[in-house]
């Protein structure tokens, strides 16, 4: 990357610029979801809010965990914990591509010098029962974002359609900042009194979690937790909509969905421990998908999901 006066200096500056940009474009800037997830899509602000008829516009950073990608902090590009930047706008605005390109300019990518391409890449999440059409966006041959028009989530057709943007923040930032190893990337301002690199913040944790994910995590405990989460999710959804205490109609889609997220992450951990065979894999994915679908069914029965007493008669 050639440096220009507009160039950001650190990882966090890129995040802050994205936050300001999408805030200026009218998105509600949310905070990360407080649970372990594999990708920003799992945040209920995307999964559940892409359902139903209510308009929505949100942007947020989501810490994401992929236990199998752990490399003890040694690989220049791979991490078991990383950040995604996620934007979801429903209905997808007609100028979403232009808005997206504006965000790249905001983080210092000079459109007159770079080659930006939209290359077919349809998105599918077997665990969420979701799919959409879109592209991976290339900058000079590197994938910097995923751009998707959601068509179905949790088995429900999306009406209206949400536009989803996902930025792999470390990779994008490394490119913008011209860094070859993620651990060498400036996290805060390199001129700050205490200048921190990405490695200063995360090298230790990458090593610790890599060891734990691959070799130490107790698989029996994890299996037990998986079963518990699955049962809890279904139990929550089995409750009658009317709350006997308040007498109000309260469908508990979100607490149930938390359990679905848990089950999904536990599956990822079990996968990293290598205890899931090829055939079992499909079965586990199917169980998580069943939970995601049940949660989606519940969400569209909530007011946030577009349910109204009148329409329900």
């Amino acid at each position: 990357m050639t440096q220009s006066s507009n160039a950001p200096k650190s990882f966090q500056e890129i995040i802050l610029r994205l936050q300001s940009y999408w805030a200026a474009k009218g998105c509600a800037v949310l905070q990360p979801y407080d649970m372990e997830v594999g990708a920003g899509t799992f945040h209920p602000a995307t999964t559940l809010r892409s359902l139903g008829t209510q308009p929505w516009a949100a942007a947020y950073v989501q810490p994401s965990r992929r236990p199998t990608d752990g490399r003890y902090g040694e690989n220049p590009n791979r991490l078991q914990h990383y950040y995604q930047y996620q934007v979801l706008i429903k209905p997808s605005p007609p100028d979403l591509q232009a808005l997206y390109l504006g965000s790249l300019e905001a983080i210092g990518i000079d459109m007159s010098l770079h080659d930006i391409r939209f290359v077919e890449d349809d998105w599918e999440s077997p665990t969420l029962g979701a799919w959409g059409l879109g592209w991976e966006v290339w900058c000079d041959g590197m994938e910097v974002s995923q751009f998707t028009y959601f068509q179905q989530v949790g088995g429900h057709d999306c009406h209206p359609v949400s536009g989803e943007l996902t930025y792999g923040l470390e990779r994008l930032a490394m490119y913008v900042l011209g860094v070859d190893h993620v651990m060498d990337m400036p996290y805060n301002d390199p001129d700050a009194q205490i200048a921190l690199k990405y490695g200063d913040v995360f090298r230790q944790t990458e090593a610790e979690y890599s060891r734990w994910n691959f070799d130490v995590a107790n698989t029996e405990t994890l299996l037990g937790h998986f079963e518990d989460a699955e049962r809890a999710c279904l139990d929550i959804l089995a409750q009658a909509p009317e709350d006997p205490k308040t007498g109000k109609r309260i469908v508990m889609a979100h607490p149930a969905y938390d359990q679905c997220i848990k089950a999904s992450h536990l599956f990822n951990l079990l996968d990293a421990r290598g205890v899931i065979s090829v055939t079992e894999r499909q079965a586990y994915i199917g169980r998580v998908r069943a939970l995601a679908k049940a949660c989606a069914d519940a969400f569209v029965q909530t007011e946030a999901g577009g349910w109204t007493a009148e329409a329900a008669g």
Partner: peptide
């Protein structure tokens, strides 16, 4: 071969 809807 594959088509989609968008917006509303």
């Amino acid at each position: 071969p594959k088509s989609m809807r968008w917006g509303s």
